[in-house]
């Protein structure tokens, strides 16, 4: 009998418990390594099952194997399929012109500086003890402000019940030290769940290895806590530029401009008062 050695891609044991031994919650997150995604959509299915996300119909798009199209109120994981005519990194019998097929499972980024949370006027959007961002469905009144505020187009209003819905990073499961459904279902460990600190170390190592093997475009996305959203609790390893996957290349939380926004609005209000004062002088009896 021949022994087949499968090269290990994941060499780390990731601790998926969301609490320390003394019960202190940890900062948890997803590292989605898209270089090993096989596009099986098990994450999409597991998410729907576990979170009882409603069916939203089957629409044939003709866009590779993607019939989900985008993250939305009823799709909290979305696997993107990108067909490229780029040289692949494996021996290619047909020579050049081979098809490179990129697959990537997208999800809410659970931004460290979250626009949705900042603009929510009811406090329905909150940050959990695990550093993730959730919508409290019993508070949300469907004002829709978070929808255009999100730099990633994640938040979406469900017309049937009028509220917004998104990935909770399986808040219910995390409370019981369980792994989120998508990560548990992922057969290649493309979706890795664990403590953010540890995930970032693993991701750094992985991207360096890919780059040294000639994957020049391999890059981490939202792994840096100094970026425009303070880094994501869900971050990614991509094999091409973010916009290829429908992701903004340099997202910035809307409230970063808050000082300018309020100064301008306040200045305009004072200008209006001054204008009325001038007009008052004109019209004195």
């Amino acid at each position: 009998m021949t022994t087949v050695t499968i090269p290990t891609i994941i060499s780390h044991d990731i601790d998926t418990r969301s609490h320390d031994a003394d019960g202190t919650p940890r900062q948890m997150g997803f590292f989605t390594d898209t270089s090993i995604c096989i596009g099986c959509k098990a994450c999409e299915v597991a998410c729907k099952e576990s979170n009882q996300v409603p069916d939203d119909g089957l629409h044939w798009t003709g866009e590779s194997y993607d019939n989900t199209s985008a993250i939305g109120c009823n799709s909290w994981r979305h696997v993107a399929f990108i067909e490229q005519t780029k040289p692949v990194q494996v021996p290619d019998e047909q020579g050049s012109g081979a098809l490179r097929w990129l697959m990537a499972s997208d999800v809410c980024k659970h931004c460290s500086n979250a626009a949705c949370l900042d603009v929510c006027p009811t406090g329905a959007l909150t940050r959990t003890e695990f550093g993730t961002v959730v919508v409290q469905e019993d508070v949300c009144n469907g004002c829709g402000y978070c929808v255009p505020a999100c730099p990633f187009g994640v938040l979406d209003k469900r017309e049937e019940d009028g509220r917004v819905w998104k990935c909770t990073l399986c808040y219910d499961r995390l409370k019981d030290d369980m792994e989120p459904a998508c990560a548990q279902a992922c057969p290649t460990k493309s979706i890795q769940f664990g403590e953010l600190k540890q995930l970032r170390v693993i991701a750094d190592e992985r991207v360096r290895r890919l780059q040294s093997r000639g994957e020049e475009q391999a890059q981490l996305y939202l792994s840096d806590s100094t970026d425009g959203v303070g880094g994501g609790h869900a971050f990614f390893l991509l094999l091409d530029r973010p916009e290829v996957f429908g992701l903004p290349p340099d997202p910035v939380v809307t409230t970063r401009g808050l000082k300018t926004i309020w100064t301008s609005a306040g200045g305009a209000a004072l200008t209006a008062v001054a204008a009325v004062a001038l007009a008052y002088l004109r019209g004195r009896a």
Binding site: D118, V119, P121, T122, G123, C140, N141, C143
Partner: peptide, 25 residues
């Protein structure tokens, strides 16, 4: 315009300067 009009009063449970909609309320 609210998705759940009967919950409009939830606007009145917070005041947030990061949310112009809250300030505006």
């Amino acid at each position: 315009d609210l998705g759940m009009p009967r919950r409009f009063y939830n606007m009145l449970r917070v005041f947030k300067v990061t949310s112009p909609m809250s300030v505006g309320t």
